[in-house]
Simulated scan of single mutants.
Amino acid sequence: MIAIRNLPVIPTVLVALAVATMIGLGIWQIQRKAEKEALVDRYASTSALPPVAWPEPPDTELLYRRATGFCLEPVDWRSIAGQNREGEAGWQHIASCRTGGGEGPGMQVVVGWSASMEPPEDWEGGEVSGIIALDPEYEIRLVSEDAAPGLQPVARPDPADMPNNHLLYAIQWFFFAGAAALIYVLALRKRMRS
């Protein structure tokens, strides 16, 4: 057994602080897990609400809600990796749409999926109905329920697809804390023997 009076003060305090910090991070991850589950539940309940008009400015509180917007004309295109409704990998085609007299795109619309990265040539805009989804670049985008000519419908946004790895992160932090404490105890025992 290691006598308390024989413990090196500074290393012991540093290891104790590190272990306490890792345990605190593990507890925080467990709290984040509960918050993420509540968020997913809230988003899942929005799909039953009535549709809304496309929000100006973008409002992430409306994620996963049905909405309708009007694309006067697509001013730019981008393609991102995505899936169609059958789960096939390919490209989602997103139009940056002009929605009014203002400058620049006012709405991002996922108009469909294809195996090719090339955007559709035949889609010139119009009324779009679909589901509001997160867009890393523009905050939100409207995922059209119907595909543009020549494209297939994309997989519907689902809040259940949101990653929730917080329990794994918590276990990882608790493991690190236990490993650090064990390594320190073994190092102390070795030091006391020599």
Rank of each mutant, 00 (worst) to 15 (best):
Ala180Leu: 15
Val110Arg: 05
Pro149Ile: 05
Ala160Arg: 06
Val75Thr: 15
Cys71Lys: 10
Ser79Phe: 09
Gln108Val: 04
Glu88Lys: 13
Leu188Gln: 13
Ser144Glu: 08
Pro58Asn: 10
Pro8Gln: 08
Pro57Gln: 07
Thr12Met: 07
Ile10Cys: 07
Glu139Val: 03
Asn165Gly: 14
Asn165Trp: 09
Gly150Arg: 12
Ala177Thr: 12
Gly24Tyr: 10
Val128Phe: 03
Glu124Asp: 13
Arg156Ala: 14
Gly126Cys: 05
Gln31Met: 14
Asp76Leu: 06
Gln29Asp: 07
Ala81Phe: 13
Glu88Gly: 00
Glu139Cys: 03
Ala148Thr: 01
Arg189Lys: 15
Val9Pro: 00
Glu61Tyr: 01
Ala53Glu: 13
Arg5Phe: 11
Thr12Ser: 15
Pro8Met: 07
Leu168Pro: 00
Ser144Cys: 10
Arg5Gln: 14
Ala67Asp: 08
Pro157Gly: 00
Arg98Met: 12
Ala170Tyr: 09
Gly106Val: 07
Phe70Ile: 03
His166Lys: 07
Val154Cys: 10
Pro58Arg: 05
Pro153Ser: 08
Val109Trp: 02
Leu188Trp: 07
Glu118Tyr: 06
Gln83Thr: 11
Ser114Pro: 04
Ile94Pro: 02
Glu118Pro: 02
Gly106Pro: 05
Trp173Pro: 05
Ala155Pro: 06
Leu134Thr: 06
Arg98Pro: 06
Gln83Phe: 07
Ala133Tyr: 00
Leu49Val: 03
Ala16Glu: 07
Gly90Arg: 10
Ala3Glu: 12
Pro159Asn: 08
